[in-house]
Design a protein around this nucleic acid. Structure first.
Lengths: 244, 244
DNA sequence: CGTATTTCTTGTGTATACACATTAGCTTAG
DNA sequence: CTAAGCTAATGTGTATACACAAGAAATACG
């Protein structure tokens, strides 16, 4: 058995299966059959099984009542709650960072990230490099979690963030064709800066409040998508596994 | 193969292994060998493997760099952070409950739990039924999570709470021989009542603040244990897997 | 015709054998 | 004597066969 590009079959199957689930290939609540998946991926049941355990750990699958795994169903309320949760956790990270203090080196690093983000739409206000911005945005939020100084918190933030619709870059337009979205980037970046400023000044409560509020932006974008641009909503990948 | 008292071998092994880990049988960071465990539990490697996946999901094990699982190490800071995290999450649950409103039935149910808790030390101020109180305390906190109306949040609270040192009843004395601990029960129950009152009055900020503060009690008890009663700390089961 | 029981199918749970990677210990060369 | 490379042992990754349980379909009986 050749092991192309990844260490184990189980990891490769997990990646492939995750992609398939997130693409909405399976109905919410659908049961995943080990044999069928094993055949379609040309491996035995063993690595498929392991992959399913991993995805259950990620929260994409749930255990069925009589064994086996089901695709987890998410409602729109779940999406909103997951974003609320991320806001609360990142708010806590920001507060702890402010209360406990951060090293000059950490501060320099996250500030550098901020400047790189600025560069993404500094060239031309009309033509923003969204892909780069999304990557940097993810990096910023990850670095913020580290600033908390709490590995427990860092771990939980990483967990919540792994759900695609709760990630920091959720409901940002990869295709920049919605002006209303583009406008939200400016205030978002402003909040990023103010969070770091508040942390620097040891203003825990303010840092927490801004980080919480910051996580409301994707919620607003989601709401806009649903109420005004149902056409786009249908093609938004984050919504593929949402059952209304 | 007989399946005594549980559905599958994997579940039984997971339970047994969890017990062993929590008892401190393994060093923190120790690698768990599938073959050895399989032999000691008289099953094959397969269910042992599955059990380890489950415990990794619970956060008791972590994957080693070159495959296999290690016992997760927790520092005292991790304990404090996990308790802080529970406070934040339960605070959010309380706030959401207040903001979104709760049904009369839910309110009656959790109030009934509160009264049952009162009964535990109402008989005699000196002789408290700790076991019953711990059970009811767990029930109260679980019901509070439900009040939030958010399954996502409920799930995460359940997750954090599964770590023994972050559970609602962590660092409560099972043997009631520490007067300082006994004294903390009164204020704790007071906070329980005020949280529910604040939720009833739709005072989200207050409900959140009290729930957060409430989670500082076990932290205080832990600190007391470590600084004043090192003798007891050595025999506290929650601390068995803490590496200083 | 409806219901209950039985059988058969299907899918997971478990054991086991084998392949491979990793590591530790040993040997050999510098 | 040290370092590098080889070899053997150990442990995980994977495939596969079999056992068993749950559910579906079919048949028999009321």
């Amino acid at each position: 058995m050749k092991q192309s590009s990844t260490r184990t079959h189980a990891i490769r199957v997990a990646i492939e299966l995750r992609k398939r689930i997130l693409s909405g290939e399976f109905e919410g609540g659908a049961r995943l059959f080990e044999v069928a998946l094993a055949e379609s991926m040309h491996v035995s049941r063993t690595p498929v099984r392991e992959a399913m355990f991993r995805l259950a750990e990620e929260g994409l699958l749930v255990r069925g009542s009589s064994g086996g795994f089901l695709v987890r169903t998410f409602s729109l309320d779940d999406v909103a709650d997951a974003l609320e949760l991320r806001g609360v956790l990142e708010g806590t990270a920001a507060r702890l960072a402010a209360e406990r203090g951060v090293s000059a080196r950490e501060l320099r690093q996250i500030s550098a990230t901020l400047e790189e983000m600025d560069a993404c739409f500094a060239i031309s206000p009309e033509d923003v490099d969204f892909d780069a911005y999304c990557d940097l945005n993810a990096r910023f939020h990850s670095e913020l979690a580290v600033l908390s100084g709490s590995q427990v918190l860092e771990r939980e933030i990483e967990r919540v963030t792994r759900l695609p619709f709760a990630s920091p870059s959720a409901f940002l337009p990869t295709n920049a064709d919605v002006p209303a979205f583009r406008l939200s980037l400016g205030p978002a970046q402003d909040q990023h800066r103010e969070i770091i400023l508040a942390i620097t000044e040891r203003e825990g409560a303010r840092a927490e409040a801004i980080a919480r509020e910051h996580a409301r932006i994707p919620r607003r974008n989601l709401h806009f998508l649903l109420s005004e641009r149902a056409d786009l909503a249908a093609r938004t990948p984050e919504l593929a596994l949402i059952v209304t």
